[in-house]
Amino acid sequence: MMNEQRREFIKKTALGVLVGLGAASGLVPAFSLEKTVLPVWDEKPVPGKIRWGMLIDTRKCKEGCQQCAAACHHAHNVPDFRNKKDEIKWLWQNPYQKVFPTASQQFVSKEIQDRSYLALCNHCAESPCTKACPTEATFKRWDGIVAMDYHRCIGCRFCMAACPYGSRSFNWQDPRTAIHDPVTTYPTREQGVVEKCNFCSDRLVKGQQPACTEACPEQALTFGDLNDPRSDIRLLLEANETMQRKPELGTKPSVFYII
């Protein structure tokens, strides 16, 4: 722990000094490319040991605040085509009846109806999308994340038909034309493949929280290991009444909501 922090510090300062000097002398351009970062996983991970999950406290979600989605889409170079047909989204806000269409819809309090509810990939424990995929381009990772291998996707869109949550988007055209503020720390996708939320596996590997969790000013999002009874998320699940989306389908989502 100590060692890692020290190393991180030394690396950052060294890099900072170097870049500073370089930039000052005009030799090195100001450089934000993802340098080799210490991955958290050293050895081969044990399948099923961890199950990442997220708890969304919708009571804290403030109207008009889009910071989580903006952070997510920015961090992952999610394109914005500004039309609904080609739309690509990983994390977005919806009204109650769209996110929980099978929950009780009668006499729902105005306060609950007025709130917005985040939708994202549920990283289901029993994921229909990975079952439908003919190439295992989308697959269940060792840590419960439903991952995408964009190198393998054939673009048949079976996963989109199989997903009961509408969490998947297809690159109907070249996404690079619609990334308005690209980051260099994460790749883009290409025309003809399906994409979706990756639970920030790119950040987890560096020991960071997901971008949305970090960006939320109200700390409405809690991310953690559902298999660890002592994790924050499990303690919150223990202490609150929570909901999953369409639980009757047996997909066992890893995203929970406090209403």
Binding site: R7, L38, P45, Q208
Partner: peptide
């Protein structure tokens, strides 16, 4: 969120 020890790279 680290789960394993990290390594010098």
């Amino acid at each position: 969120l680290s789960v394993h020890k990290s390594v010098a790279i």
